[in-house]
Structure formats: structure tokens, C-alpha cells
Design a protein around this nucleic acid. Structure first.
Lengths: 362, 362
DNA sequence: GAAAATGCTGATAGCGTTCTCAGCCACCGG
DNA sequence: CCGGTGGCTGAGAACGCTATCAGCATTTTC
């Protein structure tokens, strides 16, 4: 009877055909309970036993049945994803990543929109009240003190994404915005640009400050003084990018390169440049940040910083489940932080400046 | 004992506190099985009994436990969502709608990307092999014969979205693209435009044909002859829109209005117009289709056809679950079709033509 | 060296629903 | 009046998992 790995099923119509925990237990020569322990990563199982169970799981290609699991009391993990109005491109990448990761575990993702008009705190409260196990906050909500306060008060495990600072007890996934912005600025300086304009992002987001700081770092690092006239305020929106670009190109000594804090605004810079008859990158170099799809749909394609959005949201889901588990064992466990890598993607929107920079308008 | 509606629970830690089917049964004075029958809308329950059960359900505010349900029914529903490369805006709206609907039921959504490079049929086959209960196909895959053939052959219940024709046995959710395009064209004619340019979409999608047909309908309906020079070929992409617009504006008698088959291409038309120094809508009216976020981010905001994307994907999920249920009872059940309403959204990109249309260039 | 603590494992009892099958009743035709 | 038929209902067994608690070695403690 020991060789009976593949049991014959299929007489009863209710059989699903998928292997169950009992099949695994039988193959591994242990009880179902032990298998359950291995699956749930409990630490009171002997290493040898654990290995045998793992092997059996592998061989049978076993996956736990969600329904049974949550029914039996291990309460289906439900994670909330509270978003407001990021760009569509960001949101879809973010959703894809988190969905994928959630699908891997037995995690249910509850996606909730918080419209700009609504009171953020109320929406957050409602979400918490609906009995979620944890919450993921992509930008721009990741920097909303109101929302964070609600979540901290409710003691709901939370992970913020793409912000540079998180309160204690809240997990964080991000890239190093400052280093990335610095690298991009240094790239522009290396091309020979002397006057590099910068368009900031929404001041409510810490990422905006970080990127600006990176820009300043690079200039200072190169021994240049910072001309505040070259720093225009934007809000991450296309529209704000239009205004900021007009502003930058209207100053006495306009920049030969513009570094926008995101691709939407960079696209706006390109649009303004074109409207003014300037060639990009011939007359004006424009670079962005994020590497959203917009970066490759417009012409010329944007040189930008690639931010692994899907990986970040995936990591956020992972981090949150880890936090949940850690918290069950030790309610005072602290929250981790994770910084992922960025890359500078060079495309067609940057070039060395023309010979006599700034001589044009004279 | 009859007054004991609210039972005291909460001693055992596994108790959830929510009323169960047994509570309802007890209150209604029937067995759990009868309650189950009422819940599932089976017709072999006496009307009086049914009413009593309904009443009990109301009083207890009972809601069936999803986990238990799917466990007992062996029917955890898993739906696949196979997408390729629609616009980010479309995808995120689509995901949001379907996720929301899936969350309402106990449905798991498996989202799978089919990259353009890969063989669609293979990806579809792999998806089918992974044991999904049904598949949703948003554009552009909804019009891929290869994918549809695989799904039909595997007899996997499928719903296509935003295509005008579905093979027998495949459900369909869409809007009336033809009527919408006709309405938009009639709107332009009503404004006084005599020469209305049209940019077609990707010829592989039936929606493109439908929109073109609607354009033709309107012109023919108004007693105008159709000038084929006013119809430029596009592919739904921004880039293709640039080329098509150049083409339209270069003909001998250029149009005073351009109707692009989607917003991306309309945005491209606006960009080209601006580059040529034309004011929109002063010198050129530009209208789009879809009402993607792009429509409201660019300047001027686009007059367009609003397509309820999230509602469509929601409806697709609903339809698929209905199909699954119907099929269980009667394997030969046919697939339904559903047409949702569209709306013409008027913004700032359309206006009456200048006095002497076409006299400009002379 | 006995008693108590610890580490690992398994038997059993649920979790809340639906499915199967059997039973009851009323009605029908012969 | 009997067997058959069909409508309605209920008892009990799944469904696949985890919680609980008991049991057995093995240590540790006094």
C-alpha cells in the first residue's frame, strides 16, 4: 500500500481532483496536522520531517484549498489597497504586481478608491472597520498624515510605498529617490549641460523633496552654485508641467536641459518645447522620472529613471504578510523597510547642449 | 425557547459571531437544507416555507459564509483575465471594475499578461491548462481568432469585452460603438462642420470597423457623400495618430474637424495641430472616443464618447459566473450578450467651424 | 533518580455550507 | 384500495483544513 501515490478519485461528483493535505500526509508518512504545520511555517517541526513534507508537496504539486483554510479558522487574509489619484499607468502597474503576489498566497485584495473630495480619514476608518488584516498605501496616500494617523491609531499593519519616511510601526517599500535624482542630474552635467532646470513634484509627497535634494546634491557635488530660478514648482500633473516649463523657458538665461520629477511633467515639457519650435533633444534636453508608459509613447522617447513599480507593490504584499505573521507571534514586532534598485534608462530625449549654450536668445 | 433569537456566542475562540444557516433554520422552524435551497433560489420549496425562511434571514441579517459555501460546493470560482497591451488607462479601469465585482462574490481573479511577442494561442492554452473556470478577454485579445479558437476548443466559458461580434457560445459585453460613432459624427455635423476627418483604429479590432461604420452612417444619413481622403488609417496608438493627422491636414481641402477613434489618437491630433500653429477648437475641432483619463489631462480637454469601462468589466464577471451556473445545469446553455450605454461628453475641444471653411490655406 | 518541563507528533472535533439519499405526503390512474 | 409518481423536506455525510488537547520521547531540574 505504500506505493499508492496516485489514488484513484473521480467516482463522487464532488471530487475536485486536486490533491489534499491528506494525500500529502500519506505520501510523507505523517499526519495531516504535521503537514499543516509545515505549510504554515510553524517552527515546532523537526527538520527531517519538514523536508519530507516539503518533498511530498512538491511531488504532488499540492496547493492548499483556500476555502477550507479560511473556514477552518485561519481567517482568510484580506489586504486593503487604498489609492487616490495616481496616474493610471502607475496604478495599473501597481495593481498588477500586488495582484500577482496576492494570487500566489491565499490573499484577498480589497481595492478601494479614496476620491480627492472625500475626507481621507473617513475612508480609511471605513476601510479599517470592514475588518481588513492590513493595508497598503501607494502614493500619494502614503504621505497623508490623516490616513496614517487613523491606521496607527487602529493598529492596523500598514505598508507605505514610494515614500522616503514612514512612522514607526509602519512598513516601507521604496527606491532611493534622492540617489536616483542625483544620478540623473549628474548624467546631464556629464553631457555638458551647465544650466539644468528642475521641475519639482507635489510638495505633499516626500518623494518630491527627495528628488529635489538629489538634484541639489549633484549640483553641489559638481561645485556649481544652485540658481533657484532654475527650480520650478510642479505637482506631478501634466498641466502643472506645462506651466512650470513655460516658466523655466521664460527666464533670462533659460536652461539647456530640464529634469522633470516625473514623466508626465517631462511630456509636458516636450509639448511646450515643440510649441515653441524647439527641437528635443537638439535645442532642449528633457528627462523624466518613473519610466511610465508615457515615456515610450511620446516622441522623442524619454530618458528617465526606471522605478520597478510592480516589484514594489509585490514586495509590499510580501512585507505585509510577514508583518502579520510576526505580529501574531510577537505583537510588538517592529516594521521593516525595503529599498529596491532603480535604473537610469537612456532613450532619445537627451543630448549634449549646442555649442553656445544660452547664446540663443541674444 | 421561541424568543431566543439572539443566541449568546463567543466562548470558543473560533466562533465568528455571525449568524449561520443553522440559526436561520432554527428561527424559521425548518432544516438547514431548506434554508440552503431558499438561498440558492431552487424552485422546489413551498411558497409559505420560502417566505418564512426569507423572514428569518432578514431578522438575523444573515449572510452566507463564502468559504464554507465554496468548500462544500467544491466550486471556488477562478476566473482568468487575459490581457495584452491595451492602454494603461483602460487596463486599470478594467481591473478595478472586475476586481470589485470579484470581491463581491467569492471569486478569485487570475490576471495574466500575454505579451505581444508571445504566441497568443500558447499563452491561452497554458491559462486553460491551469484549471480556470472561465476567462475574460478585454480588447485587443477579444478579437484574436487564435485565442478564441483555443478557448472554444477547450470549452472554457468565455466572455469578450468591447467587441462587436462574438462566436456562438461566447458571452459578450460591449457598447454600441456604431451608434456612438454615429452620434458623435452627427454632433459635429450639427455644429456646422462640412468636412469631418476620421481616424480609424486598429483594423484587427471589430470595434474599429463599427466606429467607422457609424461615421459613414451619419454622413450618409445627412445626405453627404463620403470622401475617402478624409478617412485616415490609425492603430489606436498615439504615434499612429500623429501620422494620420498629418495626412489629413495635408490633403487639398483639409477637414475642419477630426474624429479620432480613440482619445490617444485625438490627443495626437491636438499635438499636431498645435505644432502647426492651429488653435483647437478655434481652427480645428478634435474629438475622441473612450473618455480615458488622457481626455481630461490634455489641453483642451477632449469632447469624447464615454465608455463605462469599469461597468463593462464588472458585467463581464457577473456574466461569466451566470454562465458557469447555467452550464452546470444545462451544458448546452447558450451565451448571453449585453450592450451598455455610452454617453457623448462635451468638453472644450469642439466648436463650430470658422466662417469660410477650407478657405484658409488659399 | 524521580518529577517536571520541553519538543515533536497525531487523533479528534469542529468551521458553515451543500450534496445525496431517503422519507413523507398528496394525488392520480386503474 | 393499491402501486406509482411527483412535490417538498430533512438527516447525515462530505468538503479540506486548523485548533485543541493528549501522548510519547527526550531533556532538564532539584
Amino acid at each position: 500500500m505504500s506505493g499508492d501515490i496516485r489514488r484513484i478519485r473521480g467516482t463522487g461528483s464532488r471530487q475536485t481532483g486536486a490533491p489534499t493535505i491528506a494525500d500529502v500526509a500519506q505520501l510523507a508518512g505523517v499526519s495531516t496536522m504535521t503537514v499543516s504545520r509545515v505549510i504554515n511555517g510553524e517552527n515546532n517541526v523537526r527538520e527531517a520531517t519538514r523536508a519530507a513534507v516539503r518533498e511530498a508537496i512538491q511531488r504532488l504539486d499540492y496547493a492548499p484549498n483556500r476555502a477550507a483554510r479560511s473556514l477552518a479558522g485561519a481567517s482568510q487574509v484580506r489586504l486593503g489597497l487604498l489609492y487616490s489619484n495616481p496616474s493610471e499607468a502607475y496604478l495599473s502597474a501597481f495593481l498588477l504586481g500586488s495582484l500577482d503576489e496576492a494570487g500566489r498566497g491565499d490573499i484577498q485584495l480589497v481595492v478601494q478608491k479614496c476620491d480627492p473630495g472625500e475626507h481621507e480619514a473617513e475612508v480609511a476608518e471605513r476601510l479599517v472597520a470592514s475588518g481588513l488584516d492590513g493595508i497598503i498605501l501607494p502614493p500619494p496616500l502614503c504621505d497623508s498624515p490623516l490616513v496614517l494617523d487613523v491606521l496607527l491609531a487602529a493598529r492596523v499593519p500598514t505598508v507605505v510605498v514610494a515614500t522616503s519616511s514612514a512612522p514607526a510601526g509602519i512598513g516601507r517599500v521604496s527606491i532611493d529617490d534622492r540617489a536616483a535624482a542625483r544620478a540623473m542630474t549628474e548624467h546631464l552635467l556629464a553631457l555638458g549641460h551647465q544650466r539644468v532646470g528642475f521641475i519639482t513634484g507635489n510638495p505633499n509627497l516626500t518623494a518630491s523633496e527627495e528628488r529635489l535634494a538629489g538634484y541639489r546634491d549633484a549640483l553641489t557635488g559638481a561645485g556649481l552654485t544652485i540658481d533657484e530660478a532654475l527650480i520650478a514648482r510642479g505637482l506631478f500633473s501634466y498641466r502643472s508641467g506645462l506651466d512650470a516649463t513655460e516658466e523655466l523657458l521664460d527666464i533670462a538665461q533659460p536652461p539647456s536641459a530640464i529634469f522633470a520629477s516625473n514623466d508626465d511633467m517631462a511630456a509636458a515639457s516636450v509639448a511646450v518645447a515643440h510649441r515653441r519650435g524647439l527641437d528635443v533633444p537638439g535645442d532642449l534636453t528633457v528627462v523624466g522620472f518613473d519610466d511610465s508608459t508615457l515615456a515610450t509613447t511620446i516622441w522623442p522617447e524619454l530618458t528617465t529613471i526606471h522605478q520597478p513599480i510592480a516589484d514594489m507593490s509585490r514586495a509590499a504584499v510580501q512585507m505585509l504578510t510577514q508583518m502579520l505573521r510576526a505580529r501574531r507571534d510577537d505583537p510588538t514586532a517592529s516594521a521593516p523597510g525595503l529599498v529596491l534598485d532603480h535604473t537610469l534608462v537612456r532613450r532619445q530625449s537627451d543630448a549634449a547642449p549646442r555649442r553656445r549654450p544660452g547664446a540663443r536668445g541674444r
